[in-house]
Each structure stands twice: as C-alpha cells, then as structure tokens.
C-alpha cells in the first residue's frame, strides 16, 4: 500500500491529480501550501511526494531542499515528482538539481502521470 502526498495550491489541479491516482492508489494526503506540507512530512511517512513549484509560504523547491538537507529525516529517501505550471528551462533544471526525481509539466497526460508514479514507486521499493 503506497502512501502519496500531493502538494498543490490550486484546488482543481489537486483534484485532477487525485482523481487520476485514485484509479490505483487510495492512500492519498493533500496539502495546499508549503507550511502544511512540511508539518505533514514531519508527522507521517510517505512513499511519494507530488509537488507544485510555486506554493505559498514555502516554495516547492525550498521544500525539496529541506527534505534533502538531512539524511536522517524520514522523508529523505522519498522520491519527489514535480507537477508544475512552470515550463521555463532554468526552473526545470533547478528542480532536478534540488533532488526531484521527475518533472511533469502541466497540462499532463494522466496515463503519463500514472506511469511515472508507478516507476518512482517501484524504484523506491
């Protein structure tokens, strides 16, 4: 049973991702800003984090850096998938440099999202 955290401040985008993932995964948490996500990450363990780049309080990028800062942190090895509105080249490279495992630009193909999620989850096992 894989547990997934979705972080997105846009309710429709969040819902879309949820509906797509609900086909195969049931255990999904969501956070609508960086602060909330960080609180959840400190509390629970997740198998995958799906985040947007631009978030209130703590940006997606900063969140990834926070996660990857300390190897003893429980989410340190959790794979991160960025699903973002940003298509700008620099920002994509920044995302990967920060330690994200994959980057998906919106609008996305739900099949594509599912296969990437699957890949990240199996790689993590």
């Amino acid at each position: 049973m894989s547990r997934i955290l979705i972080i997105n401040d846009n309710p429709i985008a969040m819902k879309t991702i949820e509906v797509v993932l609900e086909k195969e995964y049931q255990d999904i948490d969501n956070a609508k800003d960086g602060k909330m996500a960080w609180a959840l990450l400190k509390q629970k363990e997740y198998d995958l984090i799906i985040t947007e780049m631009m978030l209130p309080y703590i940006t997606g990028l900063e969140l990834i850096f926070k996660i990857k800062k300390d190897a003893t942190f429980k989410a340190y090895y959790t794979p991160v998938l960025i699903v973002s509105d940003i298509h700008e080249e620099d920002a994509v490279t920044e995302g990967f440099n920060a330690g994200a495992n994959d980057y998906l630009k919106k609008p996305f193909d739900p099949g594509d999202l599912l296969s990437r999620v699957k890949k990240l989850l199996t790689a993590n096992l």
Binding site: T16, P107, F108, D109, G111
Partner: peptide, 12 residues
C-alpha cells in the same frame, strides 16, 4: 477550461 488546462492527451 480549467480542467483542460490541466489535462492533455486523450483526456484533454
């Protein structure tokens, strides 16, 4: 519109 902005491919 908002939905289509998020989805492409067959679903879009």
């Amino acid at each position: 519109r908002t939905l289509k902005r998020n989805l492409k491919g067959k679903e879009g």
